[in-house]
Lab assay of single mutants.
Amino acid sequence: MASQGTKRSYEQMETDGERQNATEIRASVGKMIGGIGRFYIQMCTELKLSDYEGRLIQNSLTIERMVLSAFDERRNKYLEEHPSAGKDPKKTGGPIYRRVNGKWMRELILYDKEEIRRIWRQANNGDDATAGLTHMMIWHSNLNDATYQRTRALVRTGMDPRMCSLMQGSTLPRRSGAAGAAVKGVGTMVMELVRMIKRGINDRNFWRGENGRKTRIAYERMCNILKGKFQTAAQKAMMDQVRESRNPGNAEFEDLTFLARSALILRGSVAHKSCLPACVYGPAVASGYDFEREGYSLVGIDPFRLLQNSQVYSLIRPNENPAHKSQLVWMACHSAAFEDLRVLSFIKGTKVLPRGKLSTRGVQIASNENMETMESSTLELRSRYWAIRTRSGGNTNQQRASAGQISIQPTFSVQRNLPFDRTTIMAAFNGNTEGRTSDMRTEIIRMMESARPEDVSFQGRGVFELSDEKAASPIVPSFDMSNEGSYFFGDNAEEYDN
């Protein structure tokens, strides 16, 4: 783990906690998980779902989305002020799938948001429990990260689609708070800032007046979040320049895209947490497990152990491969979309394939898809080993990566060399080191050039047997250095459309 220093740990961010010791953190995270579980059980009762239907990941996603929508204050306010045809701002819903006479049927349900809020609060001892809501947002974000390569979004903001390893959390809503900021990748933060800068260039009043003052505060806050992700002084200094700019424009845009590229080699610290679907927490609570009393951590053995003992089902389209669908969801559960496939294969105990080789589309089923041909199958979400999630980018030494994705962002704290394609990355730096950030740029390029592919990161860190909950005997895996390590390699994943 990167030293926490003055930073709060993510469990504290996750639970809005002030400084807590490890036991208190485990208890408050457990409380959050228990609340999600209780809410899910109650919703299944309301909807009269069978046990099997309640364990269907598509039903879980609909129920999670309903509660997130019920608590989305800004959108609710907007919907009330701008009524649109056929949208009731006070209601929320989605597809629920039921097994009827041996076939899967889709039923569109509609609930009062007020009623959903009441059920959620009741499951969370009367609190709004925003930490639990954020947790579900991060699960949705991790699922998107594993399912889609955001080529269009990258290109629109002047970045290269091969930089997708920097895009963790790119679909997280803005209201996801400190826990959300911690899991956002460098590219995601750059993209958010670039969008602001572009608006400022096109709209003279963007930075002016009372609204402009708020915009400015948001801009500086985002700059500080991004600065905190960088691990070298030169990158941090460049972020200070971007933040202090009187009138952010093209120079800042250039600096930010430069920094994003540099992060492929001088990786930023991005938190990883295993956020599971509500249909995993519900049955665990129903079986009598007391998360608050037992304590829970999002970055240790607990999620692995929970998945070892969970039964989750998914709808499967006619030509999809259930094992591939399982891999997709497994990666999402562990926030591992940008991790090295060699490491993932070792931990999972079966070969993890790149996205383009998977015969599976996303987990969600569109409303126009034919239910007649839908089957369902068990998702295999178990693992051979477990490993500690990392909050750091690993040290800054790398190795060759593949054509589709030119770097990785480690999820697990496991000893290995970190793949990246130096030639491709360095070719993108057209040696432009003039301007006010020239000395920093020169320094950053120097550090990137001296990074050695064969150097090892996370020295001495290994994986653990599932029986080793105290992480007492690390097993340090050895990897084939020459092997392909990137998930979005030469990829044809669908595009994420909101």
Rank of each mutant, 00 (worst) to 15 (best):
Leu259Trp: 09
Trp104His: 09
Asn417Trp: 00
Tyr148Asn: 12
Phe291Ile: 10
Asn417Asp: 15
Asp491Met: 14
His140Asp: 06
Lys77Val: 15
Asp127Thr: 09
Ser457Trp: 12
Ser457Asp: 04
Ile138Val: 13
Asp16Ile: 05
Gln327Ala: 05
Arg391Trp: 04
Asp112Asn: 12
Arg452Tyr: 14
Arg441Trp: 11
Thr215Cys: 06
Tyr385Ile: 04
Cys279His: 00
Glu11His: 07
Thr442His: 00
Arg75Ser: 12
His140Phe: 13
Arg216Glu: 10
Ala493Gln: 07
Ala129Ser: 13
Lys214His: 08
Thr215Pro: 06
Gly35Trp: 14
Val29Ala: 08
Arg382Val: 04
Gly288His: 05
Arg382His: 09
Thr188His: 11
Val67His: 12
Arg446Ile: 10
Leu154Gln: 05
Pro322Trp: 07
Asn21Thr: 09
Thr62Met: 06
Glu495Asn: 13
Asn224Tyr: 13
Leu49Ala: 03
Thr62Ala: 13
Tyr281Lys: 07
Gly17Trp: 00
Gly431Leu: 13
Gln409Leu: 01
Gln327Asp: 05
Ile96Pro: 01
Tyr148Ile: 03
Phe206Ser: 14
Ala182Trp: 09
Glu18Arg: 01
Arg355Pro: 00
Leu266Asp: 04
Asp455Cys: 02
Phe39Ser: 07
Arg152Met: 05
Glu484Cys: 13
Met189Gly: 06
Asp340Lys: 03
Met13Leu: 05
Val476Phe: 00
Tyr496Ala: 04
Met238Asn: 03
Ile301Glu: 01
Ala179Leu: 07
Asp88Asn: 11
Gly490Met: 08
Asn432His: 12
Gly393Phe: 01
Ala278Tyr: 02
Ile406Leu: 15
Val343Ile: 12
Arg436Val: 05
Asn224Val: 00
Arg389Ala: 02
Ser345Ala: 03
Gly180Glu: 02
Pro474Ala: 12
Asp240Thr: 12
Ile425Pro: 01
Pro318Lys: 15
Ile116Asp: 06
Arg75Trp: 10
Leu344Phe: 11
Ser478Thr: 11
Asp51Asn: 12
Met105Lys: 12
Ser262Asn: 12
Val476Ala: 14
Ala284Met: 00
Arg391Lys: 14
Ala131Phe: 05
Gly460Trp: 11
Asn247Asp: 08
Glu372Leu: 07
Phe71Met: 06
Ala260Thr: 15
Pro95Met: 15
Arg98Gln: 15
Asn395Pro: 05
Ala286Arg: 10
Ser413Tyr: 06
Met66Asp: 08
Lys7Asn: 11
Gln168Asp: 01
Ser326Arg: 11
Asn224Arg: 00
Asn124Trp: 05
Thr442Leu: 13
Leu108Lys: 07
Asn202Leu: 05
Gly54Val: 10
Gly180Lys: 04
Arg216Met: 12
Thr130Tyr: 03
Glu292Thr: 13
Val329Asp: 00
Phe346Gly: 05
Glu375Tyr: 05
Ala284Asp: 07
Gly169Ala: 12
Thr188Val: 12
Asn492Arg: 07
Gly404Thr: 12
Val186Ile: 15
Glu375Cys: 06
Asp16Met: 04
His140Gln: 14
Arg156Asp: 01
Ser28Pro: 06
Ala278Asn: 05
Ala493Asp: 05
Arg400Met: 11
Ile444Arg: 06
Ala401Ile: 15
Ile57Lys: 04
Met191Thr: 09
Ala70His: 03
Glu244Gln: 10
Arg175Asp: 04
Cys279Met: 15
Gln409Glu: 11
Tyr97Gln: 01
Glu192Asn: 07
Gly212Met: 07
Leu259Phe: 03
Ser486Thr: 11
Cys44Glu: 13
Ala153Ser: 15
Asn432Tyr: 13
Asn368Ile: 09
Ile316Gly: 07
Val190Asn: 14
Ala366His: 03
Met331Gly: 01
Glu11Asp: 13
Gly460Cys: 05
Asn125Lys: 07
Gly17Ser: 07
Thr151Ile: 09
Ala387Pro: 06
Arg261Ile: 07
Asp240Gln: 03
Asn370Thr: 10
Cys223Ala: 12
Thr215Phe: 07
Glu24Asn: 07
Asn202Cys: 08
Pro83Gln: 12
Leu266Pro: 00
Asp51Lys: 05
Ile265Pro: 06
